[in-house]
């Protein structure tokens, strides 16, 4: 350990502002980068899912006449 107390550690021999400032900005930027990458991935997965769902809905809607015809028959009965 290069420091004898916690206060000394934070003070960094009078250079605390410089040392903690440089490390703080670096750490903050790296965390934001990771957060953004996670956000980006989940957004993309969602949008692909949405597209798949829309396509499925579309392919089902072409089958609707058959379904509605069946339902009509049942209603008539």
């Amino acid at each position: 350990m290069a420091f004898s107390s916690l206060n000394e550690f934070f003070a960094m021999g009078g250079h605390g502002l410089y040392v903690w400032g440089a490390w703080g900005i670096t750490a903050l930027l790296m965390l934001v980068i990771v957060w953004h990458a996670r956000q980006e991935r989940s957004q993309l997965l969602k949008s692909v899912k949405r597209r798949v769902r829309r396509q499925n809905a579309h392919s089902q809607s072409t089958q609707v006449p058959v379904n509605s015809a069946q339902r009509d028959v049942r209603n008539d009965a």
Partner: peptide, 8 residues
């Protein structure tokens, strides 16, 4: 002194 720690 301690300002060199920025190197890391």
């Amino acid at each position: 002194g301690n300002s060199f720690r920025i190197i890391y």
